[in-house]
Design a protein around this nucleic acid. Sequence first.
DNA 1: GATGGGGGTTCCAGTAGCTGGAAGGTCAAG
DNA 2: CTTGACCTTCCAGCTACTGGAACCCCCATC
Lengths: 127, 127
Amino acid sequence: MNISAAAERSGVPPKTIRYYENIGLVRPQREANGYRVFRESDVHKLTFLGRARALGFGIEDCRALLALWEDEARASAEVKRIAADHLAEIDAKIADLRDMRETLADLVDHCRGDDRPDCPILKSLQA
Amino acid sequence: MNISAAAERSGVPPKTIRYYENIGLVRPQREANGYRVFRESDVHKLTFLGRARALGFGIEDCRALLALWEDEARASAEVKRIAADHLAEIDAKIADLRDMRETLADLVDHCRGDDRPDCPILKSLQA
DNA sequence: GATGGGGGTTCCAGTAGCTGGAAGGTCAAG
DNA sequence: CTTGACCTTCCAGCTACTGGAACCCCCATC
């Protein structure tokens, strides 16, 4: 299977697949002409990576998860720890964004948004 | 005022101040020895930038907001538009994160996290 | 006058995770 | 034989800094 087929089947774009190979997340074989050849197992890995990334896991987390996935003797505790840590980070981000959102929404609400210069948004940034 | 004093008073670190000068957000004067000299107005600008960044505005938004702030003849509608757009982006990010969070929390909840290999988190990434 | 320390300066590289684009090789069809 | 759709590598750029190296400046002290 060529890279574009693997991309289509895994949902991971060709550019990204090459990048993943670059950083050692996948190791497709090569044909005599230099083209990458993807086996089913490569496509499965890519799909796995795509899902993990969609859940917001960083690349190094993905690397670790992939290794655990391939390790039949893994302890699920390790997986859970990685996921729980990530969940905590997401919660922190959400909290930050909510704070921003609240402040910003207040400011937007109180700005008339007409052609006059008076603006509580700017005032708040200034004060 | 030297850069470290300006940093302390504005809350923006020296490195970041230099970066902001680099991209044209502030233009401190220079002494004969090459040291930057910050006036009150520079400190005000930096403080403004610090607050805008803390609300999550991107650098280019900051540039625009700064220009509007300095323009006595601005229309508050412009400011409001920038802020409202940014608010929408924040809302979108929060929504994305919440989706992730929900899925992830479910997975974490259902993983026993012991020393056995069976793991619904990995199963979900695989399937 | 030398020295030491705490400022300041510039410039380069790296961070995360791709993505766009250039320059060029390969292959099947017409 | 050429066209067009693939594929390859490599380099640059994105966001907003941040760390670090190498070097300059100024003041106080010995």
